[in-house]
């Protein structure tokens, strides 16, 4: 199925965002452990940039329309948004590759 990189990056972006918000930030503020945000913050930033790049590439390739690209970008800014979008993208690309 086309768009494998885009879907994998959507999941990776969602996972690093959730780890950052649900684990690293509470550890820093309530446990006084700052190392988790120092590691996960830049890692999430890099994965977010890679995902944004993959959105631009997929739009340019014609895999997703402009409105789909906007939906993917907005979803990447919300916790769990990436997971919802990955499932949506998988269904959409599956229909497309089956020629339905």
């Amino acid at each position: 199925m086309p768009g494998r990189t885009l879907r994998m990056l959507a999941l990776a972006e969602a996972a690093t965002l959730l780890a950052l918000v649900a684990i690293a930030v509470p550890l820093k503020h309530y446990g006084g452990v700052g190392e988790a945000t120092r590691v996960l913050g830049p890692l999430h930033g890099l994965v977010f940039l890679a995902f944004c790049w993959a959105i631009v590439r997929s739009w340019s390739e014609g895999l997703v329309a402009g409105s789909d690209a906007a939906r993917l970008f907005i979803g990447a800014c919300l916790p769990f948004g990436g997971i919802v979008n990955e499932r949506w993208l998988r269904a959409k690309l599956s229909v497309r590759s089956n020629g339905v």
Binding site: W53, I55, V56, R57, W59, S60, E61, G62
Partner: peptide, 9 residues
């Protein structure tokens, strides 16, 4: 990103 997408297309 645009160039890479165009290349794949």
């Amino acid at each position: 990103g645009v160039l890479s997408g165009c290349l794949r297309r």
